[in-house]
Design a protein around this nucleic acid. Structure first.
Length: 122
DNA sequence: ACAGTGACAACAT
DNA sequence: TATGTTGCCACTG
């Protein structure tokens, strides 16, 4: 199981209506400085439109450390991410910013991470 | 083996 | 606020 798959496994745990950040996800996986790699993992996903994971993964729930949408316009853009979030009740203001005091997901502890990665392995 | 590439983050202007 | 700089790191060819 490579790092990307671990990233996807964590993102699948983010509850509807909550968000997390690239850096926090990296930290959960024991790599507090691998934020860029997390972004890269999501970027790689856009090349796999056919992969069922692409449809299943709530990629819209990952924003930057300031609570702002980082994605630039590509296949889908900032607006699509904002719309997807609003559709699940997250307030995104006109600056594409989200109030982390309200919507930030607490995340998982290392023991829970351990379980998730174990399940994925099977 | 190695250099290039980002949907980052923290800090300095 | 808004840019710019620097450090980062997994993956790729």
């Amino acid at each position: 199981m490579n790092f990307y798959e671990q990233v996807y496994a964590v993102i699948l745990q983010i509850p509807r209506g909550k968000v997390s950040s690239y850096g926090r996800i990296a930290s959960m996986l024991g790599r507090p400085r691998a934020a860029r790699a997390v972004g890269f993992a999501l970027n790689a996903l856009k090349d796999k439109q056919d992969d069922p994971l692409h449809a299943k993964l709530p990629w819209q729930r990952v924003v930057n450390s300031k609570g702002r949408i980082s994605i630039v316009n590509r296949e889908y853009g900032r607006n699509e991410q904002a719309e997807r979030l609003r559709a699940e009740g997250v307030v995104v203001n006109n600056k594409l910013q989200i109030d982390l005091d309200i919507y930030l997901w607490e995340g998982l502890h290392w023991m829970e991470i351990d379980d998730i990665l174990k399940v994925q392995k099977e």
